[in-house]
Each structure stands twice: as C-alpha cells, then as structure tokens.
Design a protein around this nucleic acid. Structure first.
Length: 444
RNA sequence: GCCCCGAUCGUCUAACCUGGUUUAGGACACAGGUUUUUCAAGUCUGCAAUACGGGUUCAAAUCCCGUUCGGGGCACCA
C-alpha cells in the first residue's frame, strides 16, 4: 500500500472531536475522541471539541452535557471549545451565499420539505483522499451526487458545516471513523469549491459488536456512562479503548495514560475493524482496581456501598481501607464490592443452602463451630494474630485440616463459601458479629 | 444494485511499509498442573491462526492480480 506521510508539525497540528448530541457518548465515539486526543497530546498539538447540533429535532442539551461529562470522566480534556454549530449559522450562510453567487450551488425545492441549497458536484473529476491510514483513495465524481449544504430549516448539513468549521478552526488532521470514508470525496469537492485548503485525513477502523456489525445500541452496553455505572474505571476503559485498533508493538498492553500518549502514533493504527472483547475489558479493569491507591479506590467504592444501603461509617477510616484492600483482589468491577461485602452490613446472614449443607450441618462442623465460639468468647484481644493462634490450635487438637476449620466459619459468618482470608474477614467483621453468627449457625 | 474499505489463533494483536532473523510472538478466554484457608490473584504448561487461487522471487504472512467472505456508505442524520 502506498504510504501517506503524517508530517504533523510539532505543536502546530490541530485535531477535533465533533460529536452530535443525539445520544450519549458511545464506545465508538469515545474511541474516536481518544485517538484525536492521543494524537494531539503526542504531537503537542491542539484538541478541539465541537458540538454538531445541526439536527434540530434530535439534538438535546442533556445529551451534550452527557457527552462532556463522559469526556471528562475518561480524562480527555480539550483545549478549545466546546463550539456549537447551532451558534454559527450566520457563518455557514455566508459561505453558502458565496457558493450560490459563484454559481457553484443553487436553491432546490424539495416537494416534501421546502427549499434548500445544493452544491453542484463537478463533473468528470477525480477526488483523491490522502488517507494516513489507508493510503490514497481515489473517487470518480461521476459516482457522486450533488450535495445538499443547507436544509430547508436553514441549518447546514453535516458535510457542509463540517468543512466550513474544520477550515475556519484550522484543523490540520481529521481523525474519524471509517464510516466517513465515503463522505470524504464530497467534502473535498466542497473544500475545492470554496477554495479552501484540504486537511489530512485518518480514517480509523470501526469497533464491531459480537455479531461483527458496527457497534451500536443493539449490542447492549454501548455508552460510556453505562460502563461507569457498571463499575469500570476510566483509566481501564481508556487503556482498553486505545488498544482497539492500535498497538505500541513490543507486547505491551497495560500502560498508564502518559505512556499511551508517548507511544501513540497514527502509523501504528490498524486498518482492520476490531470486535469489542468484554472479557478482556474485565481483566484489564481488575488490574486497574488492584493497582489503584487505597484512598482513591475507597472514594469510588464507598458511594456504591452507601447507595446499596450499607452503613459504611460503622467502620472507622482504617477499617474502611482494610475492607477495600481485602476485596480488591477479587473484584473485576466496582460493583463486585457491593455483592461481596453485603454480609458485613446486613443484620442477618443469608445462608446459601448448599454451603450450609456441606460445611455447617455435619456434626464435625458443629463441634468445630462450638470450639470456635467458646474460644472467641474467651479471647482477650480479638485480632488477626489471636484468631490465628486460636484456629490453628483447634485444628491441631481436633486433628483436622485447617480447611475443615476455615470453611464452617466462613459459611457461618458470610453465608457462603467464598471470602478473603478467614482471619482478616473475622477481624473485619468484629467480635460481636462473629459470635452472633456462630451462635446462629449452631442452631441450623 | 452502485461506490469504498478490509482479511494472522474464538477475541485483541505482533511480525507486513523496508520479503529471509518465524518451528508465525504476546495478551484475553479456555483446559490442565502448581500454590493454598474457600474464591480469586500468582506461577507453569497446553490448545489455537497467515481465507482461497494464481503470479513475482533463490525465498512470500509480508509485494502484485483474481476469487471468496466480511464490513461501511449511497438522507434536507451526523
């Protein structure tokens, strides 16, 4: 494939992300924004945010707010904007009038909709897109139709407003989804018709859903806010999205934001579409959860626990940190904390019947639980160390494997067979809860 | 239908531009071993791919052509 050189002048390149506020920020949109952001930061250029709200019917302020919030959440700060196309109507009108005056565009009546303005596609010319990712792509104008540039409601169309704005905002590189390739020759014809310089283009491959079609609402979770709600960390999603169609080589995958910026180049962006791999996102998210600073993790988890009705403040600050540190090893998403720590906050345990059958009901287990109950009651200090001594002793005296001690307690205390280490868990639950639940388990 | 883009393990990808260093590497997932206090995590091992057919060349995953398959676009949506 013929290569097109990027040549971004350091500190001079200008890129933009131009979402239309007709929905929340989708994963595909976020990835497009991300690649623009990475390009700008890597080359120390400028990242512009422009809201393409020229669809009067479908655009809403709520969606605009949602998009800005998602951008902030993912940590993609912009340098200029947000600019709103709906506030630039006079500018588009000026350019449209000029084209009409020069005979390059004309009014056209649509029987259903009214009078709009249409740009006449020049005949018999070749329109060449110098694509940074795909190489040169040539279109014959004979296959292209005239382009509507102003709708009958007076608003510019996407293809027109986009060209005028990119030119006026001095955008040097247009990085957008593959699905815009076929719009590009029309836009180039408009640039040329208005005598404006044509920017460079980089069409990045689409993100596909599990059925291999363009990722959309049909594929379930598709917006950034949903991923936030599901308990994914912004840095994890940032990292994951960066790898969907780009790779630094060298077999590196887990990278902090600054390293991604440092390594990102448009030359290394693939030209093949990528399927979204939820399992890998989970894995990556768990990695970020494991490595987050305790205080930051707590700040993220606490609201979720509170929202679930848990009285987190019954633990002091130190124990709150202990709690997140204990459970982070087992969490793939922040939501997992809610499920896993429930027993610590509920007055009563919800016993898993099978677990009770296997680890509490047997006579041997009851004897163990009785030992633990009296042992705990006689314990001077209720700590990890004293609990360990106690349980090890019981295990030795009864000639039982440690597992046969730990599991009955675990089920008695948490209602289930899964938890962090038994000493840590007991210590965190506290003496009162432990004795109360041992007593209850003994009645089963 | 027309125009355009694309094709490496199930998935994300490396190697492709600049052909030989490749018995095609890594990651996720999956399977097994190990560790162990349950579950995870960790660690070790295994499974698994150059769509097909022609060229070019001493040599092709890599360059060229075709076929097939997949995707995108063809709005007074963006």
């Amino acid at each position: 494939m013929e290569k097109v050189k990027v040549h971004p002048e350091p500190e001079r390149c200008r890129v933009r992300f131009a979402p239309s506020p007709t929905g929340y920020l989708t994963l595909g949109g976020a990835r497009t924004a991300l690649y623009n952001y990475l390009f700008a930061r890597h080359y120390k250029g400028t990242f512009i945010l422009r809201i393409e709200d020229t669809d009067l019917v479908r655009s809403t302020q709520a969606f605009t707010d949602g998009i800005l919030e998602s951008m902030n959440w993912l940590g993609m700060e912009w340098d200029e904007g947000p600019f709103y196309q709906s506030k630039r109507l006079d500018i588009y009108k000026e350019y449209a009038d000029k084209l009409i005056k020069e005979g390059k565009a004309f009014y056209r009546e649509d029987p259903g909709k009214g009078t709009g303005v249409v740009f006449k596609m020049p005949e018999g010319i070749k329109l060449r897109v110098d694509d940074l990712i795909h190489g040169p792509i040539v279109f014959e104008s004979e296959y292209l139709t005239d382009v509507v540039i102003v709708k009958s409601d007076g608003y510019p169309t996407y293809n027109f407003a986009c060209v005028v704005d990119d030119s006026l905002m001095n955008v040097t590189h247009i990085i957008r989804g593959d699905d815009h390739i076929s719009n590009t020759p029309k836009q180039i014809a408009l640039y040329e018709g208005m005598g404006l310089p044509v920017p460079k283009f980089a069409h990045i491959p689409l993100i596909l859903g599990e059925d291999k079609s363009k990722l959309s609402k049909r594929h379930g979770h598709n917006s950034v806010v949903e991923y936030k709600k599901l308990g994914y960390l912004p840095d994890a999603l940032f990292n994951f999205l960066s790898l969907l169609g780009w790779s630094p080589g060298e077999n590196i995958e887990l990278m902090p934001k600054n390293e991604i910026i440092e390594r990102f180049t448009i030359e290394r962006v693939k030209h093949t579409p990528a399927q979204f791999n939820f399992k890998k996102l989970d894995w990556m998210n768990s990695h970020y959860i494991k490595n987050l600073e305790p205080a930051k993790l707590l700040a993220l988890v606490k609201p979720l626990l509170t929202e679930a009705g848990y009285n987190v403040n019954k633990f002091d600050d130190v124990h709150q940190l202990t709690l997140v540190n204990l459970y982070r090893e087992r969490a793939e998403t922040l939501r997992d904390f809610v499920e896993a720590t429930g027993f610590l906050f509920h007055d009563d345990v919800t016993y898993n019947p099978e677990a009770v059958e296997a680890y509490v009901k047997p006579a041997k287990s009851k004897e163990v639980l009785q030992d633990v109950f009296s042992g705990v009651n006689n314990l001077g200090e209720f700590s990890h160390a004293s609990l360990e001594t106690l349980l090890r002793n019981i295990s030795e005296n009864r000639k039982l494997k440690f597992k046969d001690i730990a599991q009955p307690i675990r089920v008695a205390l948490t209602g289930n067979t899964v938890s962090p280490g038994i000493f840590e868990t007991m210590e965190l639950a506290g003496k009162e809860m432990v004795t109360k639940r041992l007593q209850k388990a003994l009645q089963l």
